[in-house]
């Protein structure tokens, strides 16, 4: 049944598709790093005993977790140019492309999810560790940086990576603002050459292989990091 299909189209456009894949990797990595940094700050705020810190952080997380990613992408695609105009005072939003709108949207959105993961990770560190750190005279900052967070992150590596795989899949949604990530490249070729079946199946296979391999690696890590006694 595949006789009428032209699979060569993928080989002919491989350079363009590869460009798209690089964009996807770029966006995933940057948003992951940004999301983890912002997520850690939010998690520390949520765990703080000061209401002025934990209430806004809780509101942020609950708000972003109740709206779809596409809506967040649209929000920032619309807001970032306005903000740039306000800051630079120029009537045109120059010098900042849609890539940054997308990156900001993903960072802000993923931070809410990373926050919850990191919060759980911090809470999984035994309370005695914190008490011992304070008893040794460490400040809050030292206790966090040298005792709690290193242990928390070590426990969290598998689940942070799993979230990274989800993020990698989610970056395909930049399609909605016309950016050329891997999926954007595939769909542009698909529409130009009228090869929807070939390109979309190819995209599915590529995403599957990458995500399956990554999740397999996460399972291996998890098995290694979990003590045998558990």
């Amino acid at each position: 049944m595949f006789a009428a299909f032209d699979w060569e189209v993928i080989w002919r456009t491989k350079a363009y598709l590869w460009q798209g894949m690089l964009f996807t990797f770029n966006l995933t990595l940057l948003a992951m790093v940004g999301g983890i940094i912002l997520g850690t700050l939010l998690a520390l705020m949520r765990l703080s005993s000061y209401r002025i810190l934990n209430v806004p952080a809780g509101a942020y997380v609950n708000l972003l977790r109740s709206i779809p990613l596409i809506l967040v992408i649209f929000w920032f695609y619309f807001l970032v140019p306005l903000a740039v105009k306000a800051i630079t005072g120029s009537p045109y939003a120059e010098g900042i492309g849609p890539f940054y709108s997308a990156l900001i949207a993903f960072t802000i959105f993923e931070a809410a999810y990373y926050c919850e993961i990191i919060r759980a990770g911090i809470q999984s560190v035994p309370r005695g560790q914190v008490d011992a750190a304070y008893a040794l005279g460490l400040t809050y900052r030292q206790a966090m940086m040298r005792v709690v967070l290193p242990q928390a992150f070590r426990n969290m590596v598998p689940i942070l990576l799993t979230q990274g795989v989800i993020l990698f899949q989610d970056t395909s949604l930049v399609y909605v603002v016309g950016l050329t990530d891997f999926m954007g490249a595939a769909s542009k070729v698909a529409q130009r050459d009228g090869r929807l079946v070939e390109l979309y199946l190819f995209a599915a296979v590529v995403y599957f292989v990458l995500c399956f391999a990554a999740s397999y690696y996460v399972k291996y890590l998890q098995a290694r990091l979990t003590p045998a006694s558990r």
Partner: peptide, 17 residues
């Protein structure tokens, strides 16, 4: 299979493929 392919790709496959 269904967890490791982005929802957007699956959407296009159901609709176009």
């Amino acid at each position: 299979i269904f967890r490791n392919v982005p929802l957007l790709v699956q959407m296009f496959i159901w609709y176009f493929v």
